[in-house]
């Protein structure tokens, strides 16, 4: 019977309180998830339009790209933008993405000088620092519904570093939100910008009047395009984070309930045992007289 009645009682009380907190956190995450999902949807329209205009512009003539953001350079150094959360209590969300990044890096690179990390979110930054991996940029404390302005700092940084040839390609690593139970770690190539994958889309036959000229518009549009792609993955990652937080907290609440059940049974047994013992003692005492 080990624990005394009182001990079990305190344990039950404290577990109950924990389950209340995790239950509340689950609801908070659920509310945030809903918001994030509608936000992601609104952003989707923007991303599609930017993509369409860029495709229209790029496919309207067949000259090789001259813009620095589209030219493929020889890859000497790769940048990884890793999106993690700032807080814990999100289940396997962070370990999932970090594991996939580490295994990918091990597969691709033999030397430390071949890659650099840009960390978005405290967990990722601390993880790489603890492993002595060079982290060239850290952004912490991103809000739950990040605005475009907030994210622009890291996007501008990434684009600038790319243009300064700090690295020759950029991958964004994040958890893609599938539904509230499932998310998958993704690694997408953002820079240099390429349109190879849209081979099935028919190139538009419309020729466009360009004002002032192609290069100027590309100079304005491509950073916007890159920004929107990276921002899109950040929004996606945030949605996945809220979903992971919700699932983790739901599991925690369920576990707390089953612990409370077990403890209650234990408590009742202990109570019963002590009553039985008391009776035995009284009976033994009476017969001794």
């Amino acid at each position: 019977m080990g624990a005394s009645l009182n001990e079990i009682k305190t344990k039950i009380a404290s577990t109950k309180k924990t389950s209340q907190i995790t239950g509340a956190m689950q609801m908070v995450s659920a509310a945030k998830l809903q918001k994030a999902e509608s936000h992601a949807k609104a952003f989707q329209t923007y991303a599609e339009k930017v993509r369409k205009i860029t495709t229209d512009l790029v496919s309207s003539d067949n000259e090789p790209a001259k813009n620095p953001m589209m030219i493929k350079r020889e890859v000497k150094k790769t940048g990884y933008l890793v999106i993690t959360s700032d807080r814990g209590l999100v289940g396997g969300y962070n370990s999932n993405i970090l594991k996939s990044v580490i295994s990918n890096i091990r597969k691709r690179h033999t030397n430390e000088s071949e890659y650099t990390i840009l960390a978005l979110g405290g967990t990722g930054a601390d993880f790489f620092k603890a492993r002595n991996v060079k982290v060239s940029y850290v952004l912490r404390g991103l809000s739950d519904q990040p605005t475009f302005e907030e994210v622009r700092a890291i996007v501008t940084e990434a684009v600038e570093e790319y243009q300064a040839e700090e690295f020759d390609e950029l991958y964004v690593c994040y958890n893609h939100h599938v539904n509230s139970l499932v998310s998958e770690a993704r690694m997408e190539k953002m820079l240099p910008i390429s349109f190879d994958e849209k081979g099935d889309e028919k190139a538009s036959l419309v020729t466009f009047e360009l004002e002032p000229d192609r290069e100027t518009i590309l100079n304005q549009l491509l950073p916007q395009y890159a920004e929107s792609m990276i921002y899109g993955s950040i929004v996606d990652a945030k949605t996945a984070e809220h979903a992971a937080g919700m699932t983790a907290m739901r599991t925690a609440t369920d576990n707390a309930h089953s612990v409370i059940n077990d403890l209650t049974i234990q408590y009742n047994r202990a109570r019963q045992a002590s009553i039985t013992q008391e009776i035995t003692e009284i009976v033994a005492g009476a017969s001794a007289l």
Partner: peptide
């Protein structure tokens, strides 16, 4: 107002992209 100056847009105009 585009980077090149003010433009007026009417229906059925020629396809254009501008900053």
């Amino acid at each position: 107002r585009t980077t090149n100056g003010e433009i007026g847009i009417l229906p059925n105009m020629i396809s254009t992209i501008a900053g």
